[in-house]
Nucleic acid binder design. Structure first.
Lengths: 226, 226
DNA sequence: CGGACTGGTCAACAACTCATTAAGGAGTGT
DNA sequence: ACACTCCTTAATGAGTTGTTGACCAGTCCG
């Protein structure tokens, strides 16, 4: 899977970007300063760099040129300024694409995918396989014993998340945080309901389950049937 | 390695483009006038042409048509104007892709790579085929079950983009960014409307679709019918 | 064995997403 | 200048999904 280096001093944004991309399966490295970032790029040979132009220790354009001097890695810059000249100058300095703050998670994902695809390394993973359960994330389709499952968006996200951690127990709070993107609020009841629906579509009940097993007091896990 | 003909009158840009592509290992030929460029294309049978639309001796669209009359070589045009109509007309005249000046070096590399990848190195763009749907990007024509489709420029771009990613779900925001080239502004409603028109011309409705499936909450995908 | 807690399912409502039609505006070619 | 095509925006209606609360079943532990 593709590796990404993030160079961003604001903790909130850095962690958000890192988490979103890690969730997508990218191998993420974070840096908080220009120098640290440059080292990561040189040492790690990443497939993509996401660079904040507003670093405190060095002008973004300078760092951009330094990276360019040693590497042809694709670079997406994040900038607070939106005026056209600034963007053009950034692109001329060697950036491949840009994000204007504040940017949505959606845009981030789309830009990352687009850039990686352009350079022929779109990080598309093959389908997940757990027993006779097959999950294709890019097509957003899932099959059980060869038959397509009709899943709602959340159901699919939930199944995919569990399949990525097949065999591991996952708590409801973790699911709320990762699948529902609600680290704090949110009712665990919601998770129960979705799990129930998922079970039904997998042709199971809680008592008699092939794939989706509940671990009392802890959480659930998706297992490969014996 | 692939050969590229550059037709550009401004010395600075011509040399920059030539150097960048030569560094990448392409076999580069430069021309400063329309007539010289046409000769290079006819005589050299290049794999790719990069054509400036602002030549002094001949209107760019005219030259584009002349090249198209004798060759199906992929063409990337460089234009100073960014407005949509200009781009659309250029693409209609037979260009495969476009660069808006001022463009970054990386943008140039990315477009060149993308076009060459699309045509698969043989210098001849084969049509995209998805089921009984055939899309010829160079001729800007599409057929369904052997019948030609009458598509507007945007409709064609949209269909082509989806066909290049057949089977994959694409979000509306991604479509706005890649087909409309508006990563930020732009309403997703616009995409909805164009999708609706496309469906109609494909003889489908949202409820009963062979090719264009909406994935609720995520986006759309073009699929090969069962 | 029974109380307390955790988990499962059902049904209903609110919120959101999508499809389609229609209208308006910008640009093009005649 | 006129008719034309095309793109965008707005409005409306239909459809889907997510969440919540109620209620029941299962599990743990003293």
């Amino acid at each position: 899977m593709a590796s990404v280096v993030i160079i961003e001093d604001e903790q909130r944004i850095r962690e958000l970007v890192a988490r979103v991309l890690a969730d997508q399966g990218y191998d993420v490295t974070s840096s908080t300063t220009a120098m640290e970032g440059l080292q990561s790029v040189v040492g790690g040979s990443p497939d993509l760099v996401i660079l904040d132009m507003g670093l405190p220790d060095l002008d973004g354009t300078e760092l951009l040129k330094m990276i360019r001097a040693v590497s042809s890695v694709p670079i997406i810059v994040a900038t607070a300024r939106s005026d056209d000249r600034e963007v053009v100058r950034t692109l001329d300095a060697g950036a491949d694409d840009y994000l204007i703050k504040p940017f949505s998670v959606d845009q981030l994902q789309a830009r990352v995918r687009a850039v990686l695809r352009r350079v022929g390394n779109d990080g598309r993973a093959g389908p997940l396989v757990v027993g006779d359960l097959v999950i294709d994330a890019t097509a957003r389709e899932a099959w059980l014993d060869g038959d397509a499952l009709e899943l709602s968006p959340k159901e699919f996200d939930l199944l995919r998340f569990l399949a990525e951690r097949a065999g591991q127990v996952v708590s409801k709070r973790e699911l709320l945080a990762e699948v529902w993107r609600q680290p704090y609020g949110g009712s665990e009841k919601t998770v129960d309901v979705h799990l129930s629906w998922l079970r039904r579509k997998l042709g199971e009940t809680a008592a008699d389950s092939r794939y989706l097993q509940t671990v009392f007091g802890v959480g659930v896990k998706l297992v490969e049937p014996a």
